[in-house]
């Protein structure tokens, strides 16, 4: 991999370890080359991983937030998918580099007295930090971990550690299980967190119909994201108000490009978190890397956080 890694390219992550977690799941440990802190995250967060091929994939962070210089993602190899997971599995070796955006969080762990976690397959990776947090806070929790084939299911050691709390169920061996029965009637202040494939999530509202509506929180792990390819080609930034046009090399955030051209945009966190540098975008397609906008807001393509974000199109027109 030839990606340059310098201070202004702080979105570069090096693979420091690969850990096989099942026959089809590999965990990647990612750090900055200089081991500087990475942006903070909370359980439920994911990062956008930009692969060497330019493909973007979203992976839940499954590591420990008390290790601030390190992210972990667990990747299930999917030979029938869009090729992202296969690229990670077959090509990414320790020492190789990827870039990332975020972390973003659409699946936050809300406060409750007890939790019911339901994982389908690799959906377990989003729930691991939640389980760790429930433990840390001394809260009651139960996990139902569903899959087809035991050999493919990662992190089953949870069951050995917490035999009273964890139910692992592989449909290949034991057929279907009733989620409603497993849930039973949990204590009043319970929240249900589920992550897995569409088929699992679709069944949940019905399985939870006896519980208050606000109880169930879900996240889909399949990458339904458009197969956008991030370009590392040079692009052009037009500043509408002054009429200036600035050439941007690929792989560089808009703020860095503008600063080099003598145009300062006031920033604060430089991580796409605080929102200080927001600018309106008048034309062009944005390569969003911030932690602020949700998917719908991103899709409107009308504003960006130039401290981390850049361009997908050849030209970006900013209201500056």
């Amino acid at each position: 991999m030839t990606a340059v890694d310098n201070a202004s390219n702080s979105d570069q992550l090096v693979v420091t370890q690969r850990l096989d977690r099942s026959t089809s799941v590999t965990e990647f440990v990612l750090e900055r080359r200089d081991r500087r802190r990475l942006p903070d995250w909370a359980p439920g967060a994911h990062i956008d991983v930009v692969l060497p091929s330019g493909k973007i994939r979203q992976y839940s962070l499954c590591g420990d937030r008390w290790a601030p210089h390190q992210y972990r993602i667990a990747v299930q190899r999917d030979d029938l998918g869009g090729g992202g997971s296969v690229e990670l599995h077959t090509e990414l070796k320790p020492g190789d580099t990827i870039s990332f955006g975020g972390p973003r969080n659409n699946f936050r762990l809300a406060p409750a007295q007890s939790y019911r976690f339901i994982a389908g397959g690799i959906g377990i990776s989003a729930l691991l930090p939640m389980i760790a947090q429930a433990n840390l806070l001394g809260l009651e929790w139960q996990l139902l971990y569903l899959g087809r084939n035991l050999e493919r299911m990662a992190y089953q050691e949870l069951q050995e550690r917490y035999p009273e709390r964890v139910t692992v169920h592989a449909s290949q061996n034991a057929g279907r299980i009733s989620i409603r029965e497993w849930l039973g009637s949990p204590p009043d202040d319970t929240m249900v967190y589920a992550c897995g494939p569409e088929s699992l999530l679709e069944a949940l509202p019905e399985a939870c119909s006896d519980l208050p509506e606000t109880t169930l929180r879900t996240e889909r792990f399949t990458n339904t994201m458009a197969d956008a390819i991030v370009s590392s080609e040079p692009y052009e930034i037009k500043l509408q108000r002054s009429g200036r046009v600035v050439e941007a090399p690929g792989n560089t955030s808009v703020v860095d490009v503008l600063a080099n051209a003598g145009v300062d945009v006031i920033t604060s966190c430089s991580q796409g978190v605080c929102g200080t540098c927001e600018v309106d975008v008048l034309a062009g397609e944005i390569d969003h890397r911030d932690a602020i906008l949700d998917d719908d807001e991103r899709a409107t393509n009308t504003c960006m956080f130039p401290c981390v974000s850049r361009s997908l199109s050849e030209r970006l027109v900013l209201d500056l």
């Binding site: 903070d40 600063a259 300062d264 945009v265 006031i266 920033t267 604060s268 966190c269 430089s270 978190v273 605080c274």
Partner: peptide, 14 residues
Amino acid sequence: DPSGHLAFGSGAHQ
């Protein structure tokens, strides 16, 4: 360019 001043703090409590 005053960017990066710490009058609002920084990090998780910014």
